[in-house]
């Protein structure tokens, strides 16, 4: 474990908790893409199947349980509890256009052709594009609540920190995983446009609004 991975995990945790609190406190999921949240729940489910069979450390197990619990709680709140506030008209990104190609790619490009490994690879590829419906929704609505932009910033930052973690691990441990690195680069690049808007607008106290 190195400081970049630890801060990356904490940034990820902050993002997930921030979103959960936003929906819970405002009792509304306006501006939140349910499709992205369903894909994140799918990412954690397919990635943490070894939760009970492969114990790494208390930290690792606790974080996996928290990620799984929070992501399912978020999906539950969006599609059940606060369904009335779900903005389905703007959450129109075709998620199947992501899940199917990602599923196919996981079969073709992986480290080992075993169910667990293919599911892990699927979760890595899916996570890299899972935020697209959310970013797409923001372009449709032309704006985002400030709390939502903080959520997105923390979420984007987490994988950027993981990229530094992989550089660190390559340099000091000679460890690298090309699938995770390439997907991590794609994932972080997708946030660049948002990062620019976040830093130039939200951090200057302005609301994030896109030229509609």
């Amino acid at each position: 474990m190195n400081v970049f991975r630890l801060t990356g995990d904490l940034s990820h945790l902050v993002a997930i908790i921030l979103l959960l609190l936003k929906i819970w406190k405002t009792r509304s999921c306006a501006g939140i893409s349910g499709k992205s949240q369903v894909m994140f729940a799918l990412v954690f489910t397919t990635r943490y199947l070894d939760l009970f069979t492969n114990f790494i450390s208390p930290y690792n197990s606790v974080m996996k349980v928290i990620y799984l619990g929070c992501s399912y709680a978020t999906v539950y709140m969006i599609y059940m509890k606060f369904k009335a506030s779900y903005d389905g008209n703007h959450d129109t990104f075709r998620a199947e256009f992501l899940i199917i190609p990602v599923g196919g790619l996981a079969f073709l490009v992986n480290h080992e052709f075993t169910p667990l490994e293919i599911l892990w690879t699927f979760s890595i590829y899916l996570e890299s594009v899972a935020i697209l419906p959310q970013l797409f929704m923001i372009t449709k609505t032309g704006e985002a609540e400030t709390i939502t932009t903080h959520y997105l910033f923390a979420l984007g930052l987490y994988r950027a920190l993981y990229l530094i973690n992989w550089i660190w691990r390559y340099y000091f441990e000679g460890f690298f995983d090309l699938i995770a690195i390439v997907a991590g680069c794609v994932q972080t690049i997708l946030y660049c446009d948002f990062f620019y808007l976040y830093i130039t607008k939200v951090l200057h106290g302005k609301k994030l609004s896109l030229p509609a």
């Binding site: 991975r5 990820h12 974080m63 996996k64 080992e112 490994e117 993981y162 441990e173 995983d177």
Partner: peptide, 10 residues
């Protein structure tokens, strides 16, 4: 070995 190592990441 490599896989074992990697699986320690979230």
């Amino acid at each position: 070995e490599q896989d074992k190592e990697r699986k320690d990441e979230l």
